[in-house]
Amino acid sequence: MNTKLVYFAWVRERIGKGEEDIELPADVVTVRDLLNHLKTLGDEYENALQFPEVIRVAIDQEHVEHSEKIAGAREIGIFPPMTGG
């Protein structure tokens, strides 16, 4: 099953696209696994996610920790710390 990934701010710029649908390997279970998997997809991903501890993630538009399981997620947002207001 494909999962929709959406990227924002400098994560979006470095990866070079705002969203994509990708098929995830079965051993990608948590958000942390997902970030590590994406880093293997190319230099642009490696560049965007080189410090995964600062990256924020939302599953179906709700903030989650990196330990969260991604099973059943329809949309996963990946972005830097927020700077609104």
Binding site: M82, T83, G84, G85
Partner: peptide, 8 residues
Amino acid sequence: LKTSAPFW
């Protein structure tokens, strides 16, 4: 809002 709402 500053730390949780997704704006950049």
